[in-house]
Design a protein around this nucleic acid. Structure first.
Length: 106
DNA sequence: CCACTGACGAGTG
DNA sequence: GCACTCGCCAGTG
C-alpha cells in the first residue's frame, strides 16, 4: 500500500477506547491523512459489518451519526451501542464531544 | 482517461 | 446556530 490504505484507518478506529467517540477528521488526522475525512467514512462504509471494527464510535464533527444508504436504521443501533458504553445524547440527538470525544494522548 | 458519487471538514455571512 | 461553498481523494462505470 503505497498510499495510506484503509488499514491505517481501521487501526485507528479499533484503537478508540470504550465509552469514547472520535470524529472522521480526527481519525484521518491520526491516520496521517489530515483533511481526508471523506476517505475515512468511505473506508468504514466499505467495511459493512463483516469486520470487528467499532465503527459505531465514529461520528462526524457535529457529534451526530451520519446516515448511510439505509437511512436511520443503523443510526439507532449505533446510538444503542454508544449508550451501552456510557455515552449520552442530548435533545438534538447529538453527542457532547466536549465530554466524550476521544483524546489520543490523555 | 473522464464523470459521478460518497459515514466529511472548515471557512464565511 | 444555520445555510452555503469549496476542497480532498478513492472507487466504480
Amino acid at each position: 500500500m503505497t498510499t495510506v490504505s484503509y488499514q491505517e484507518i481501521y487501526s485507528v478506529v479499533s484503537c478508540i477506547p470504550r465509552g469514547r467517540v472520535a470524529t472522521y477528521g480526527q481519525i484521518a488526522r491520526l491516520a496521517g491523512i489530515p483533511g481526508h475525512a471523506r476517505q475515512v467514512g468511505y473506508a468504514l462504509s466499505n467495511l459493512g459489518d463483516q469486520v470487528p471494527i467499532p465503527w459505531h464510535r465514529v461520528v462526524n464533527a457535529r457529534g451526530m451519526i451520519s446516515s448511510r444508504a439505509d437511512g436511520c436504521s443503523m443510526a439507532v443501533v449505533q446510538r444503542l451501542l454508544l449508550e451501552d458504553e456510557g455515552v449520552t445524547f442530548d435533545e438534538h440527538g447529538r453527542i457532547p464531544l466536549s465530554r466524550f470525544q476521544w483524546l489520543p494522548e490523555s
